[in-house]
Design a protein around this nucleic acid. Structure first.
Lengths: 230, 230
DNA sequence: TTAATTTGTGTTAAAACAACACAAAGTTAA
DNA sequence: TTAACTTTGTGTTGTTTTAACACAAATTAA
C-alpha cells in the first residue's frame, strides 16, 4: 500500500442575502495556531464519511445551520503549504441559505460564527479568501443560468425582492419591467393571493413563490433558465 | 495531529478528436487486482506534489502525452468504497489534446494506452465511467461558451473541420453559413493564405487559425464567446 | 389633500437569430 | 473533353428576442 501523508478537509462558502447585501459565513477558530482567526466553516473528514456529509456535519457543528443549496466548488491542493502545519487538501463547497432561517450558534470547535458582507471580508486563515472569491464568481455566473436565487430568499417574496437580489449580486441595473416579463414568461414563479404592505410606504405588492416542481418538469422538456440582459 | 487514513489520487479524462469522432484516452492496468482492466490515466499523488503537476506527470508516464488544455473537473469522494482496497478520494481533471500530436506509448505502470470512441467506452475500473460521463457533459456545455474546440484541432484547420467538430460533439446539425458568420464575427479566427485540397474531391478550402492573443485581448474588454444556436 | 413611495403594466425600435439556394473550384468517371 | 459529383464560399429575409422607455394605481406620511 502506498505511503502518503496528506490530510483531507472540506470547507464551505455559505452565502446569505438580506436587504440588498450579500453575506458570507465565517467562524472564529477556538484552538490551534490560528486561534481567534476567522476562517470558513469546515474541517477534516472522517475515514468513513462521504465528502458531502462531512460538509453538512461541519456546518451543523460550527454554525448550527442547514443550507438550502450545496454543491462542490473546487479542490484546493496545488499549494502544498496552504496549511503550514502539514499538507492538507481541501474540497471547497458552495452553499446558499436564507439567514433568517437560523440563529448562528458556534458549537464544537468554533468560538463564534458570523456573517460578513461580501465586500467587507477580513483576512481569513489559509487560502480561504481565494475560496470566497472563486465562490463569489460562481454565484454570479450561476445566478444567470440556474434559478438558485430563490434559495437565498424567503419562501414567499415580493417581485422587488427578487429583482433587488439580482441587481445587488450582479452589481448592475436591471429594467424592472423587462425582468418581470422574462421571469414570469418561464412560468416557474407563481403569484399567491397574499398581498403585503412594504415596511414603509408605497403600494402593497403580491407575494410570489418559486415553483420547484414546475421547474423540474420543465427541465425534462429541455427548458433552459437564462437571464443575462438589460 | 488528526488521524486520517485516506489516500488521494488524480485521474484525467482526456478527449481527442479525429475525423468526426470524439475519443477518450484509457490505459490498461499492469498490476494489482484490476490488472488488464481499462481505467482512466491517473494515480496517487506524491506528498509534496501539487495536484496539477501530478496529473501532468501521470499523463506523461502512462501515455506519453502532454495536453493542450487541462482543468479541474470534480472530486470524487462520496462513495467511500469507490476503491475496494481502501478509501481513495480522486480529483478528476478534464483535458483536451490533438491525438495527431502524439503516438501513445504506455510507460511505467500501464500495459497499454488507447483511444476509445466516446460512444464505445468499455466498462472501466472504479467509478471511471461516471467520470467520463461528467467530463463529456462538461465538454459539451463548455464548447458553447468557451473557445476550447481549437485545442482538439490542428494549428491550421479548414472551416469545415471546426464545423464538423461542433456538429459531432454537440450531436446536432448546424447551419454552415450561420456558423461561419458567427465565428468570423468574433474576430478570433483568422484566415491564412494557404489553400488546401481536401483528401478526396471538391473545391480546395482556405486554412484558418485560432488567434489566442486576440481572444485574450477581447476577454479584457468583456467579450463573451458564445455559440448556442441553429 | 398633497407629496412621496412603491407596485403594476404595454409599445416600439433595434438587434440577433433561423431558414434558406446557388455559383465557384476542384476531382472522378464516362 | 464533357458531365456528374463533391466541397467551399457567400447574402437576404422574415421572425424572434432584446433594450429602452413612462404613466397610472395603491398606499403612507406630512
Amino acid at each position: 500500500m502506498i505511503d502518503q501523508n496528506i490530510k483531507i478537509a472540506v470547507d464551505a462558502i455559505v452565502f446569505g442575502y438580506e436587504k440588498g447585501t450579500l453575506y458570507v459565513l465565517a467562524v472564529q477558530q477556538r484552538f490551534g495556531k490560528l486561534a481567534d482567526r476567522w476562517v470558513l466553516p469546515g474541517g477534516f473528514i472522517l475515514d468513513d464519511e462521504p465528502l458531502l456529509i462531512a460538509v453538512e456535519r461541519e456546518l451543523k457543528e460550527e454554525a448550527g445551520i442547514t443550507v438550502n443549496y450545496l454543491e462542490q466548488l473546487a479542490t484546493f491542493g496545488d499549494d502544498v503549504h496552504r496549511d503550514e502545519r502539514f499538507r492538507v487538501i481541501s474540497v471547497a463547497y458552495f452553499a446558499l441559505v436564507n439567514p433568517k432561517n437560523f440563529v448562528l450558534k458556534a458549537d464544537t470547535d468554533a468560538k463564534d460564527a458570523k456573517w460578513f458582507p461580501v465586500t467587507k471580508i477580513p483576512q481569513l486563515g489559509y487560502d480561504h479568501n481565494a475560496m470566497v472569491n472563486l465562490a463569489h464568481q460562481r454565484l454570479k455566473s450561476k445566478l444567470t443560468y440556474q434559478p438558485i436565487g430563490f434559495d437565498l430568499l424567503d419562501e414567499e417574496f415580493l417581485f422587488s425582492d427578487l429583482e433587488n437580489l439580482y441587481c445587488s449580486i450582479l452589481e448592475r441595473d436591471i429594467d424592472r419591467r423587462n425582468f418581470r416579463k422574462k421571469i414570469l414568461s418561464f412560468g416557474i414563479v407563481t403569484e399567491t393571493d397574499k398581498v403585503v404592505k412594504m415596511g414603509a410606504s408605497g403600494r402593497p405588492g403580491k407575494l410570489f413563490t418559486f415553483d420547484k416542481t414546475k421547474y423540474n418538469q420543465l427541465l425534462k422538456e429541455n427548458f433552459q433558465f437564462d437571464i443575462r440582459f438589460a
